[in-house]
Nucleic acid binder design. Sequence first.
DNA 1: TTGATATGTAGGAAATTTCCTACATATAGT
DNA 2: ACTATATGTAGGAAATTTCCTACATATCAA
Lengths: 133, 133
Amino acid sequence: MTTDHVFAALASPARRRLLRLLLDEGAQPAGRLAVRFDMSRPSVSEHLKVLKDAGLVAEARKGRERHYRLEAGPLMEISEWLTPYERFWRERLSALSSLLDEMDDLDPDDQRDARGPDGSDDLNGRNGEQPHV
Amino acid sequence: MTTDHVFAALASPARRRLLRLLLDEGAQPAGRLAVRFDMSRPSVSEHLKVLKDAGLVAEARKGRERHYRLEAGPLMEISEWLTPYERFWRERLSALSSLLDEMDDLDPDDQRDARGPDGSDDLNGRNGEQPHV
DNA sequence: TTGATATGTAGGAAATTTCCTACATATAGT
DNA sequence: ACTATATGTAGGAAATTTCCTACATATCAA
């Protein structure tokens, strides 16, 4: 149930789809989930096991069925991991949108070069020095 | 550069650490990144390639060095994928916090059972019917 | 030009993942 | 007790991933 497990579990499209099904349709027995997949039932069962080990689903025995339900908690770890990058992509987005705004202000047929005066790349996207260790 | 590639790229702890280094310290040549790892330089180079194929880093040749910089854009896809689950874990969290609030209101030595009257599980955590197909 | 530096790629071993076909187990129904 | 249903597990094949040691390529510095 570590962060590693969660990231690894999400690496599989089949497993992400399982989570989505549980989110959209609520808890379900393994078999009902399995028939949706173009894959053998035991394989789906193993994917469920990976999700369970990552803490992303929980099972409850109901008679001879086992109902799996979504356990979204561990996804918070992904969200938290993502947080520090958010600022970064927002900067890029706002840079892009202001660039588009500028272009709107010009004659639509008279744009040629939106780069800086020196034509350089600004590798860091912030035009400043970096630690470099 | 599909969503699949992005999720797969993040599945490796080494690659997540590479992204973090680029975020914290800015763009750097491959070699400077590699020495931080307990792994051969060519292996780190291959991880960088996986990240590049996922669109998570970009490279710029500077003389005999290649500087890699973070490209956070594709992480938005992860964030968007996560969105519908957010509501779900927030509900659980607020349920937990209100439970804790209730417990605060009681005599700290007189709590025994916080389950529903029927002792059932409420598998969906919302006490309601579900589509079930 | 020569030699050192910075990197990517080739080729392959080892580990892991993915998926399948039996097969074992447990529960429902008759 | 017997049979059908719902699932997990065992064992193994095939594909993928991870990592390493050469080795090839390009650039910088004398």
